[in-house]
Amino acid sequence: MPPEPAPTGRGAALVTGCSSGIGRATALALHRAGHRVYATARRPGTLAALAEKGPRPLALDVTDESSMAAAVDEVESAHGAVTTLVNCAGYGLTGPAEEASLDAVREQFETNVFGAARLTQLTLPAMRARGRGTVVNISSIFGRYAVPGGAYYHASKHALEAFSDALRLEVAPFGVRVALIEPGPVRTRFGERFVAGFRDEAEGTVPEGDPYGEFRRRGAAYYERIFRGEGRSLAGAFVVEPEDVARAVVRAADARRPRARYRVGLLARTTIQLRRVLPDRAFDAFVRRQFPVP
């Protein structure tokens, strides 16, 4: 199958986490919108099918300084600057907060927060020199509130939102825009790892004597239905596709004055608004009705 037509010249876009899901859909959507897309992943071999459609594959590990610097250098050598940086790489660490390994928590933040922050630092000097550029960070509805079983994943998204809010004000005088994308549940392989955090990975079952055993069982079943778009819960009824998120990224990247936040899906629009208007006690009651709790 021949590659799709060459882009029309909106500048170079560097997208992380493109081996599947939101990153892959975003790379393809930006290419079709006319950007020169560098689609990245830790293992470039996973990008072969995507590369056939036009985006250029590039190795990039957001937890490795030399890998990030090399990727940015390659794009800047060819185009002078990264015009659009899209920080998609990330995963969800799940399970009870009490039981999480702090090494696993550090790894979560290295990927979801520090990788995005360092890539932004690496690309900003050339953006500033050109007087233009856009940074798009993929957050989540859980960047605005948190529910049981996702304390550290949600904390990483809260951190990404705070980073983006401060950055947006700092770089605006240089012509650089910053936008956040806040989707609800997305039908991707991300969900598989999210669900696995509620289970014992070796056995696929909950260990005996786990004080959170019943919570783990219900959490695994609940999120498995969510990411399949099944069930009667509010979340299960409004799962979105990676392409829905990608369209929001393109809108942010192409806008002259992008919004600070783009909510993707009805669940994102409704629950984030609820969090804004409800007192904590009332919102806690809503969470208890909609999500598994211990």
Rank of each mutant, 00 (worst) to 15 (best):
A41K: 02
A41S: 07
R42F: 10
R42T: 08
R42S: 07
R43C: 11
R43G: 12
R43S: 14
P44Q: 11
G45E: 13
G45P: 09
G45T: 08
G45I: 15
T46G: 06
L47N: 05
A49K: 15
A49H: 13
L50M: 03
A51P: 07
A51H: 11
E52Y: 03
E52K: 13
E52N: 09
E52L: 09
E52C: 07
K53P: 04
G54H: 05
G54V: 05
P55S: 13
P55D: 06
P55C: 09
P55G: 12
P55Y: 09
R56G: 08
P57H: 08
L58R: 02
L58S: 11
L58D: 01
L58K: 01
A59V: 08
A59P: 15
V62A: 06
V62I: 12
V62F: 13
T63F: 02
D64W: 02
D64R: 09
D64C: 07
D64F: 05
D64V: 11
E65D: 15
S66I: 09
S66E: 13
S66F: 08
S66H: 12
S67G: 15
M68D: 10
M68T: 01
A69S: 05
A69F: 00
A69H: 02
A69V: 04
A70T: 01
A70D: 05
A71D: 00
A71E: 00
A71C: 01
V72D: 04
V72I: 04
V72Q: 04
V72Y: 06
V72C: 05
D73T: 09
E74M: 03
E74N: 02
V75W: 09
V75D: 08
V75I: 15
V75E: 07
V75T: 13
E76P: 07
E76K: 02
E76T: 04
S77E: 00
S77C: 01
A78W: 15
A78T: 12
A78F: 09
A78R: 13
A78I: 11
H79G: 15
G80Q: 06
G80K: 13
A81R: 05
A81H: 01
A81T: 02
A81K: 02
V82M: 15
